[in-house]
Simulated assay, not measured.
Amino acid sequence: MDTYKVLSDSELVSLLKKRDREAFAEIYDRYSMMIYYKVNQMLREEDIAKDIVQDLFTAIWEKSDLIRDHVGISSYLYVAARNRVLNYIQKAKTKSDYLTEIGRYSLQVSDETLEKIDERDLMLLITSEIAKLPAKMREVFELSRLEDLSHREIAERLNLSETTVKKQVQNALKILKVRLSRYNSLGIMLLIFLRGS
């Protein structure tokens, strides 16, 4: 097993796709706690966070052939975990009512009160709005912001022009900033999550 600890992520993914259990175990050891921490940060419900992480790692074992060769496993796991969190929220009966109430409430309260909205709620609002972007725009935006790829790298991966990629990122930022503008507390989150243009 120690020999697997020195392998790169891409080498581990190649072995995982060949159904290598030790490669899977090493990926789990490297990333499960980090992914659990991120999921629990978003939900703050430990049992549900554990279930989501378990489900995620079960899925990558069962569907390892679907992992693209050029995707960094840490980015892949983060995006997959985030999507599972969104799915969980969408299935929860109170999710849409909750967001609607936050929207109504934000129009009636002072900036000082808005500053007290929990960071978890802000992150959920951001991820929820990203999920509503048109499919291609969302894909380009996630590659830019979550995988930190350059416009050129995204263009090559998706077979698009750099100009198209740049325009998609700019349009995504405009849409998100308009949708989130009423939440004044999001300034800090926008600086972190929507860095650059």
Rank of each mutant, 00 (worst) to 15 (best):
V165P: 03
D148F: 00
T163N: 14
I154E: 11
Q168M: 14
K174E: 15
L149R: 06
Q170G: 08
E147I: 03
E147D: 09
L180T: 14
L160P: 01
R152L: 03
S161H: 02
L158W: 00
A155G: 05
E162W: 04
R145Q: 13
L176W: 15
A172W: 03
A172D: 05
S150P: 03
V140F: 04
R152S: 08
Q170D: 13
V165G: 05
E156R: 13
K177D: 15
E147R: 04
I154D: 07
K166E: 15
E153N: 02
R145V: 08
K177G: 15
L180G: 13
V169L: 09
E153M: 00
A172F: 05
V140H: 09
S150M: 04
E153Y: 00
N159P: 01
E162P: 12
S144I: 03
N171G: 05
F141V: 03
V165Y: 04
L176R: 12
E156N: 12
E147W: 03
T164M: 08
V140C: 08
E139N: 02
K166F: 12
A172Y: 07
K174L: 15
T164K: 09
R145E: 09
L149E: 01
L180D: 12
L158I: 00
E153D: 03
V178Q: 14
V165Q: 05
K166Y: 15
V140L: 08
S161R: 01
D148K: 01
S144V: 03
A155P: 03
K166C: 13
R152Y: 09
L149P: 02
R145H: 14
E162S: 13
L149K: 07
V169R: 10
V140A: 10
N171K: 14
E156P: 02
L160A: 02
I175M: 13
V140Q: 07
S144L: 00
S144W: 03
L143A: 07
N159E: 13
N159A: 10
K167Y: 09
R157F: 09
E153F: 00
E139K: 06
Q168W: 12
